[in-house]
């Protein structure tokens, strides 16, 4: 245990240094592509960390996490769109200010997670997986049908949100904003999982019957975790919308939910930092394979199968636990 923790600390320190230094190094090579790619990693990592809270710690296999990611993105894009069009939405003019739009994105995603979570958590096991998937698909079809917001084609953002009135055009600055938010998310989720709340959430995964006998109404704790995860995914979506300056129903396609799940398991279930590593590995593999062939899924699919069959502990577990016995 001690040794594993030491290795974890070293890995986190190294990763932090690498992530902080990345834009500077990239700038010396004159590469903006690397910064964009790394920003994607940070955002995917954030969403993966939130998914790990419910899958890894809570044991709640949600197959619809992309819905909250997409809702967050659409919230930001729609607020900007309404402002630009001069058409108020629900009596509100819309906004282009991150300090307003991003919390609203989290609120919208959180509310959706509250409603869908309350319904889905009445069930468990295979039912839960399929129902979370079905609800996400429902949100997907709503946005496909909303022609006013571009339907299938998606909705572009003319420019990035302002932050406290200042524009964020520089990719490096946007990168550091994402990095700071990811660090905050990891810090908070880490606190949550070690708190009394986290003990109940984790205990309910391990033995639900015991937890009920102790007097815990586990569903309430699970629902709160589900909402927290949804809100973080919503923030991730808001950042994504700003990075791509574009949102589309693809953000909440069921394949996206599957990809987030791949990142979590690839990185390591219930390992807090693992999912970020998983996101990095995912992006690396995806971008490498898609350069090789247009049909990169033919190669990536079997990789996913192999991960599922042979690497249940994920990269983080492999890096930190395996050496314990050495």
């Amino acid at each position: 245990m001690q040794r594993g923790e030491r290795i974890s600390q070293i890995l986190v320190a190294l990763a932090t240094i690498a992530l902080v230094a990345l834009p500077v190094v990239a700038a010396t090579f004159g590469s903006t592509y690397a910064v964009t790619l790394a920003t994607r990693l940070l955002i995917y990592g954030m969403v993966a960390v939130s998914l790990d809270l419910i899958i890894g710690y809570g044991g709640l296999i949600s197959f619809g996490h992309a819905a909250y990611f997409g809702l967050g993105g659409y919230t930001v894009a729609i607020l900007a769109f309404q402002l630009a069009e001069g058409v108020p939405i629900f009596g509100y003019d819309g906004t282009n200010e991150a300090l307003v739009a991003w919390p609203l994105a989290m609120l919208v995603s959180g509310l959706a997670a509250l409603v869908f979570g309350a319904l889905s958590l009445r069930t468990s096991g295979a039912y839960f997986i399929m129902i979370t998937l079905a609800f996400a698909q429902m949100v997907y079809y709503v946005f496909v049908a909303l022609k006013y917001y571009g339907g299938d084609d998606g909705l572009a953002m003319a420019r990035r949100n302002t932050l406290g009135g200042a524009r964020i055009v520089d990719p490096q600055i946007f990168y550091y904003i994402c990095l700071g938010l990811l660090a905050a998310v990891i810090f908070l989720v880490g606190r949550f999982t070690r708190s009394r709340f986290g003990m109940v959430l984790t205990g309910a995964r391990m033995n639900e019957r015991r937890m009920a006998a102790l007097g815990f109404s586990v569903m309430r704790y699970r629902l709160v975790a589900f909402v927290i995860a949804g809100m973080i995914a919503g923030l991730g979506g808001a950042l994504w919308a700003n990075l791509a300056r574009f949102v589309s129903p693809d953000m909440m396609a069921w394949t996206k939910s599957g990809e987030f799940m791949v990142m979590v398991i690839l990185g390591g279930l219930g390992s807090l930092f693992g999912p970020v590593l998983g996101a990095a590995a995912f992006i690396l593999v995806e971008s490498t394979l898609s350069e090789l062939t247009e049909y990169w899924q033919v190669l990536f699919g079997p990789v996913v199968v192999l991960i599922a069959l042979f690497a249940p502990r994920g990269l983080w577990g492999w890096l930190t636990v395996r050496r314990r016995g050495a």
Binding site: R191, F192, S195, R196, F197, G198, M199, V200, T202, G203, M206, N207, R209, R210, M211, A213, L214, G215, F216, Y221, V224
Partner: peptide, 27 residues
């Protein structure tokens, strides 16, 4: 019926926690 993956002490601490009011304490 025990929480596998927790220590013996964790298991008992959960029982005590259940008697100390709400566990919606996050930090």
């Amino acid at each position: 019926q025990l929480c596998q993956g927790f220590t013996a002490e964790d298991n008992v601490a959960l029982a005590i926690q259940a008697r100390q009011g709400s566990s919606f304490r996050f930090f």
